[in-house]
Design a protein around this nucleic acid. Sequence first.
DNA 1: GAAGGTATGTCAGACTGCTGACATGAGTCC
DNA 2: GGACTCATGTCAGCAGTCTGACATACCTTC
Lengths: 150, 150
Amino acid sequence: MSPGGIDLETSLGYLLKEASSALRTAMEEVLRPLGMNVTRYSCLELLSQRPGLSSSELARGAFVTRQSMNVLLQALEREGFVTRPAEAPVGKVLPTQLTPLGRANLEKATVAVRSVEVRMLSGMTEAEQTGAFRILQSMIHSLRAESDGA
Amino acid sequence: MSPGGIDLETSLGYLLKEASSALRTAMEEVLRPLGMNVTRYSCLELLSQRPGLSSSELARGAFVTRQSMNVLLQALEREGFVTRPAEAPVGKVLPTQLTPLGRANLEKATVAVRSVEVRMLSGMTEAEQTGAFRILQSMIHSLRAESDGA
DNA sequence: GAAGGTATGTCAGACTGCTGACATGAGTCC
DNA sequence: GGACTCATGTCAGCAGTCTGACATACCTTC
């Protein structure tokens, strides 16, 4: 690390952004023909695994604000992919459910996404995948250490 | 991997997105008080290390389209952070240069960004950092394997 | 020299996501 | 019960980025 600047060629942050950008591009590429994008897919996949999630919980899971997720959910509801009760059963939380139509579309998207995931993992041994998992979790933990509290 | 879906809890793609999101949030947090964002900083840092880069080259380095970079460069030029010749010395390429003002602002931003980078690396041994570097590069290479050609 | 392919800069329009702000409901503490 | 705090849903406005399109300049290839 030179005191004058951050060497982008050896910066782990830069490389992380590069990897994330490549992943995003690859995902959008296979999802576009299905009329989906990464956020939409994330939302549906989350709902599939944990039905009844609220808009705010979905937002956190998809790494967007709850405002953005709200807009997305309205679109998904209009298209018949998800349903939300008109009135909150308790508090203000509106639990969201996947419709059969939504589930069908999700399954098509899952196939596409899995192909990208497989491609990304190709060339990595099982040990390397485990190592990657631990390292990424370590980064996340460290990055959130002070940000959340402050 | 269950055939029915992709387990977000164990998906390396999901974790990569999570790490990237955490990094982006942390970066924006420290850059905002300086009137900067990640793309602006990336652009200035690139120009610092490789003066005379074109708009398209900067775009690739900052992982945005050349159209987006063009908009950004116009703003940076208006604010006196960079300069571009009115006429292209050769071809259509407009080589961009950092001004003293731009360099001064970059240095302030670099301090902020370095603190995030250090925080992200805390808790990782040197060997783990090297491993992380190799693994991320492997992912990038695999993801771009077919996307570019197709 | 002409033709095709590639890369660049630029303009216009649209979309996505974010910040700011407000009201509401739930839980906590006195 | 009342005040405080927190999380949620929602509206409005704004910033950043993208796609599509066009003109131009270079570089082959014939």
